[in-house]
């Protein structure tokens, strides 16, 4: 429906970077709705930045489609544990193990990621949640990042491309350093 037949054979279009597809306010509203529905109706995300502690944990899902990248949630390990307790409620065990946290934090990433995916041009596929140290940012221009606080603790949501930046386009006048004397 969206793929014109003559698209095949044309030179590849420049890949869209995420700031052209989604803005911070949208990511913030997706995360905010996720928290209120999933964590609890009083659990507001406050849009103020804070310094992440040294010991952080990230949960993310990959999106593969017209835009390819990851939706990454990063917070302090203790905050991730608190989130897990909030999700598990009375069913939370006395001692949380890593699997409990990976499961709950990963599911939050899945919900935020699914909604980010649906808000950008598709169709795309969504990967299963992963948990660990955050994936590296490949291209600083292909990132949409918000910083919020939950119960006073900082949390970052980063929608980041998985692909390195494209080689410098061959339109020379875009880059005076490449061929300074010509024109």
């Amino acid at each position: 429906m969206t793929l014109a037949p003559d698209a095949v054979g044309r030179p590849p279009q420049p890949r869209p970077a995420i700031p052209a597809l989604i803005d911070e306010a949208t990511v913030e509203s997706i995360a905010g709705e996720t928290w209120i529905a999933l964590v609890g109706e009083d659990e507001v995300l406050v849009p103020i930045p804070g310094d992440l502690p040294e010991d952080t944990l990230s949960a993310w899902v990959d999106v593969v489609g017209p835009w390819t990248g990851s939706v990454v949630l990063t917070t302090g390990r203790q905050t991730a544990a608190d989130l897990t307790r909030a999700l598990l409620g009375e069913a939370a065990p006395e001692l949380l193990d890593h699997e409990d946290v990976a499961d709950a934090f990963g599911e939050i990433a899945n919900v935020v990621g699914g909604n980010v995916k649906a808000a950008i041009p598709g169709p795309s596929t969504l990967g299963l949640p992963e948990v660990g140290p955050a994936p590296a940012v490949r291209n600083p221009a292909d990132v949409c990042r918000i910083e919020v606080c939950w119960r006073g603790q900082p949390l970052v949501v980063s929608v980041q491309g998985a692909l390195p930046s494209l080689p410098v386009p061959n339109t020379q006048h875009d880059n005076p350093h490449q061929n300074g004397a010509s024109q």
Partner: peptide, 13 residues
């Protein structure tokens, strides 16, 4: 659901 936390939330509801 593959998430235990989500299974618990849906089951509890």
């Amino acid at each position: 659901d593959d998430s235990r936390a989500m299974r618990r939330i849906v089951s509890a509801a």
